[in-house]
């Protein structure tokens, strides 16, 4: 990816859609502005607050997982986020530079024995809040779609 550090390439289209590609280097300092850009786009497209909450949470979970588990918190590795917002749907792809993972191997955090384990809920929340979540092989890219109900 030939983007400069923290480079934002957001394009607002005339049909009230918005898209962009953002390369993140540090989840703690750069996630907030990305979330703001996506939330602004969602609101601009007329989505309600529940939709905004859902997409914002799923985006945060995907990016946090990409840095923590995908890149193993290696500061040399980046996370690339693509998003497209239209009146009909929000599409987000988050890709890390790790070697991927098998989503079926992640333990169910709602099992009684796993309730007190403090991690492992990110993918579950993405799936709960987004309409569709795909982990693209080898598992270092997640693509998510949110379509408003009704």
């Amino acid at each position: 990816m030939a983007e400069s550090p923290g480079h934002h390439d957001e394009r607002r289209d005339s049909d009230s859609s918005r898209s962009g590609v953002v390369v993140l280097h540090d989840v703690r300092t750069e996630l907030d502005s990305l979330q703001r850009a996506v939330v602004d786009g969602i609101r601009h497209a007329g989505y309600d607050e529940a939709s905004t909450f859902a997409v914002r949470l799923a985006l945060e979970e995907a990016v946090a997982n990409a840095f923590r588990h995908g890149n193993g918190e290696d500061p040399e590795k980046v996370v690339t986020v693509e998003f497209k917002i239209s009146d009909e749907k929000v599409w987000i792809a988050v890709e890390d530079e790790g070697c991927g993972f098998d989503p079926d191997a992640v333990p169910d955090p709602t099992e009684e024995a796993n309730l007190e384990i403090p991690s492992g809920r990110g993918i579950m929340l993405m799936r709960a809040y987004m309409t569709d979540v795909s982990i693209v092989a080898p598992g270092n890219r997640v693509e998510m779609v949110f379509r408003p109900a009704g």
Binding site: F53, R56, L57, E60, E61, A64, E116, I117, P118, S119, G120, R121, G122, M124, L125
Partner: peptide, 15 residues
Amino acid sequence: HLSSAALGVLITASN
């Protein structure tokens, strides 16, 4: 707003 990382912190505090 809260994320799964926050849930993790709450679980750790609870334990």
